[in-house]
Structure formats: C-alpha cells, structure tokens
Amino acid sequence: MADLTATGPAALRRSPLAHLTDALRAATVTGPRAVALAEWPCAAMVSLRVDPASPAAGRIAQALGATLPARCGRTASAGSRTTLWLGPDEWLVVAPPGAPAPTAELAAALGEEPGSVVDVSANRTVLELRGPAARQVLEKGCALDLHPRVFGRGQAVSTLVGPVPVVLWRTGVDSYRLLPRSSFADHLARWLMDAMSEYALPEVD
C-alpha cells in the first residue's frame, strides 16, 4: 500500500474549487467598478466550543493570543490567526493556507473541561471577493446591511448570500471573505461570477 503518511493528508487535499480556478480568474472585472473573485484554498480552520465564562476559555484565549470575541459580528486576530464568533459558545479559528491547524494547543488549553476542539479545515472553503464593486455584488444576495457604518472591517457574521449559508467576513475596505460549506462552494462561486458580470459594462442610469 502506498505510504500516505509520508506526505500527510494535507498534501492530498484538493480544494473544492480547484476546477474553477481559471473561470474565477476569467470572471475578473476591471475598470471603475472592478471586482475580482479568487479562492483562498485549504485554509486551516478549527471549530471551538467552550463556555466563555469557564477557566478553559481564559486558557484558550491565552493560547490564541486574543480574547474570544463575545458578540455576534466580532472577530479577534492575533498573528496570522483570526477567531470568528459563530455563536455564544462557538467560534471558528481560521489560519492561512499552509499553516497547521492549532488543534493540539487548543485541545491542551481546553483540558478536561466541557467543550470541543475539532479540525474542520475541510468543512468550508474560503472565497475572496475584492474590488470597489464587491459590496454591490454581495448586496444582490445578502439581506444584511453591509454599509461600513454597520458592517466594518474585521467583522464576520453567519448569514445567507444568495441561497447559500456562509460566514461573511469583511477583511478590508473593499475585500470580503466568504466561507461556504465545501459542497455549496461551486454553486456560490458560480452565483458570484454571475452577479459580478454586469460590472464590466457601463453603469445604466
């Protein structure tokens, strides 16, 4: 039998949107209403559940280097890792592609207390939408108020974009990350490419 452990499971991973890389690049819109879509493949993600009032939450915050965000929409970044609020006792820790998932250190910080630390890197993929028209593209399919005064940089919420449940994360003035479940990623990517296409044309008054 082939030695799968030599390269490790990470080397065997195929991103859910590997087949769309060229299509995503071709869908890039330039000009005054530019918008571009790309996949941020194989990011490391850890699902974290713990009582935020417990001592374990304090130890985990120490391991992460940032306090666990306490409210909907909040995120906390430390180094290359960001912790997104998913629920009152649930968070998603996202580390960039190639970085190891911090499962072991978080599990050690949790110790024997109730909670869970699970590597869910394959659960979702990350789509990056950037450009001056990015917010307009999202507003076609997202009912939330995405104006910067409400949904600013560094905020993340679970919601629907089009028909797809995603974690929507604003990373910059004109850049967003969308985290759909892997099996919905193809549909969401095609939905976004379709939504982007009109911005290549001059604006109609």
């Binding site: 909907c72 998913l86 629920g87 649930e90 919601t159 449940p165």
Partner: peptide, 12 residues
C-alpha cells in the same frame, strides 16, 4: 410562545 432556531446564524 414558540421555539425558533437561527439556522443560518448562530444555530441556537
């Protein structure tokens, strides 16, 4: 009084 669940949000 009814139970509801925020299915695509915090799932609570």
């Amino acid at each position: 009084a009814e139970r509801w669940m925020h299915a695509t949000g915090c799932r609570r």
